[in-house]
Amino acid sequence: MDNLPSIGDRNTQTIVCSFCDDIILRPQTATLTNKPTLLPQMNIEKTPSSDTENNRLSINGNDHVCDSLETFWLVLDMFTFENVGFSNTVNNQTKYLVCANCERGPIGFSPINPLTRQLEKEFYVAFDRIKYK
């Protein structure tokens, strides 16, 4: 993007997968939000580097090295997405978002209500894991 967007701004450009260019969100459909979150890294490393020792999440019994991310594009209706994949529910609390075409991710997440097991209708796409077109 030409100018870095601020929190509360809408996306002015199309948000696409940084690997395969598949369209994820059309312009003006998401709002930039601050939401500090540990998001598992896209590539699973067998021998994670030591500086990420603290950023780990256990998923289905396996440790995943995570990035600590703060800035996300927020969407409140899943059908706002042009294309997206939802993972199975992890640890009874999260579904991760992946590219619907190449399936790389997670590009974001959506919280699950642990009691109802339903999606909370908040869909977060990581600012650092997508690109614009």
Binding site: Q41, M42, A100, C102
Partner: peptide, 22 residues
């Protein structure tokens, strides 16, 4: 992609529940 070439990606360990396509 169900190929082994993609089996190192994050999602292959968790599985996809559903997709939205337009």
């Amino acid at each position: 992609f169900c190929d082994s070439a993609f089996s190192t990606t994050f999602i292959s360990t968790i599985g996809i529940d559903f997709k939205i396509r337009t």
